[in-house]
Design a protein around this nucleic acid. Structure first.
Length: 474
DNA sequence: ATAGGGTTAG
């Protein structure tokens, strides 16, 4: 193309950039794409926009942003590309900021439509809502879609279902799902994932059968979601019918059948176990407190993935649960030597459309005094109704028993719940909820006769009258 | 003719 001088043709140039950025990794050369770009004599919006996407797929958000900022007049595709790039890079706040700017800044009219934000914009922003758990914004966008008379295509409907499910409104997700008549594999899979997340494993399996009747071919994600549904609902035999070793280890392990899980890995797998398989076993050992097997899984796992910080945290928690503090100290030393840090626990709660974040022992909230006061009051009321803090869930070595109890009360989930008790209760946790916080929430729901909805990294917990929707199985 | 979107265990 260079020899023929085709770079001066914007059509060819844009296509070349796209081709270079979507090629499989060996022939993918973004550095070269960038160099080429500087040589394009007449770049147009198509070339700029292709480049945003190209850098985003190489996960270099900074470069995408530099291209975006340099565009003299941006159209809706430029904005959508940049918003999608931020969303996919796990930077939902940046995406949201762009969306808000988009509404007030000039957007060059597009050939096709002349509305400011279109379906593609909404798809990305709904994905932001899923990530942040901001159901109010999600509802606003849903309303806006209605208002503009936009029909739901599969992309948009999938995003809506995912948003409602991840924001805790499963009924609404089902409603959207049922309102679509041409359903593709993404739509079906997203609905199954939503059901699984809320503990409706059987319903997810029924949906899978319905999907087959509709002659839609499942893909690997569909199976993944199915197995997740089986795993979270304890459906061991149904899960066994789908062949996937990592998930099967998880299903067996979660159900406490650790020996069977190990036997599967060591004697039945036709291929060498990959990291995720050992990860599933380690996770199961952590749940069931099996240190010896946990150590074995851990060593296999870090041999395959030395930088896996999650493995260290799981193993350390397993030691701590078993009161083996020397093990914890050794692991921490190993982590320090490798320059690794544990992800900080953070819970956020949405009250009247505003998201509040809490870290452990957080005092940055304007009314933090009120929150701790409320927490004290909760502690005494819970104690008199029979709740005993589960000190095994304190994963640092605090000698004094009273101090241990104090430290448990500083967990971010509890702070968010206490704040919620002075407002509406909808809690998001970025990591898995700990057993003590889980029983805490149960007692809160019965003593205060309030519903608590807690979304952790993997699923939803809906506490009502002292019971949780997960039936203590997660 | 060239650019933008959705589902995913531990």
């Amino acid at each position: 193309m260079l020899r023929l001088g085709l770079l001066s043709d914007p059509y060819s140039a844009s296509r070349l950039i796209a081709a270079l950025s979507f090629s499989p990794s060996p022939s993918r050369d973004l550095h070269y794409a960038h160099q080429l770009f500087d040589q394009i004599p007449h770049p147009n919006l198509f070339t700029w926009n292709a480049l945003i996407r190209a850098f985003a797929s190489s996960s270099d958000l900074g470069l995408s942003r530099r291209v975006f900022d340099g565009i003299p007049v941006r159209d809706v595709v430029s904005w959508n590309s940049m918003i999608a790039a931020s969303t996919q890079a796990g930077r939902p706040e940046e995406a949201l900021e762009l969306f808000r700017r988009m509404e007030v800044e000039d957007v060059k009219p597009n050939d096709k439509e002349d509305i400011i934000a279109d379906q593609v914009t909404f798809v990305s922003v709904l994905s932001v809502c899923s990530q942040l758990g901001t159901i109010d914004l999600g509802r606003l966008i849903h309303a806006s879609i209605h208002k503009h008379g936009i029909t739901l295509n599969c992309h948009l409907a999938t995003s809506l279902i995912d948003m409602y499910a991840k924001c805790g409104n499963l009924e609404k997700a089902v409603e959207v799902f049922r309102s679509v008549d041409q359903r593709d594999v993404f739509l079906w899979s997203a609905m199954m994932a939503g059901l699984a997340m809320h503990g409706h494993g059987e319903a997810a399996i029924e949906l899978f059968l319905e999907m087959q009747e509709a002659k839609v071919k499942p893909n690997e994600v569909t199976f993944m979601n199915m197995l997740c549904a089986c795993s979270h609902s304890g459906l061991v035999d149904k899960g066994r019918k789908v062949e996937h070793y990592g998930c099967m280890v998880d299903i067996l392990g979660r159900a406490g059948r650790l020996d069977e899980a190990l036997d599967l890995i060591e004697n039945q797998m036709p291929m060498p176990p990959r990291a995720s398989v050992w990860g599933a076993l380690l996770g199961a050992c952590a749940v069931h407190g099996n240190v010896k097997l946990g150590e074995k899984a851990f060593e296999h796992l870090v041999a395959l993935e030395p930088g896996n910080d999650g493995a260290y945290v799981l193993m350390s928690n397993l030691y701590a649960k078993s009161d083996y503090w020397d093990g914890v100290a050794k692991l921490r030393k190993r982590m320090r030597e490798m320059g690794m840090k544990k992800e900080k626990g953070c819970s956020s709660i949405e009250v009247d459309g505003v998201v509040y974040d809490f870290l452990v022992g957080d005092i940055s909230h304007p009314s933090y005094r009120k929150i701790y006061l409320k927490l004290n009051e909760i502690a005494s009321r819970l104690r008199s109704s029979g709740y005993v803090p589960n000190r095994s869930q304190l994963l640092q070595n605090v000698e004094d028993d009273d101090a241990k109890e104090q430290a448990l009360y500083l967990h971010s989930e509890k702070l968010a719940i206490a704040f919620g008790l002075i407002s509406t209760i909808r809690v998001m946790k970025n990591l898995r909820v700990c057993e003590d916080c889980h029983s805490f929430a149960k007692v809160v729901s019965s003593v205060y006769k309030r519903e608590v909805v807690l979304r952790d990294r993997y699923r939803f917990h809906r506490f009502r009258g002292g019971e949780c929707s997960c039936m203590d199985y997660w």
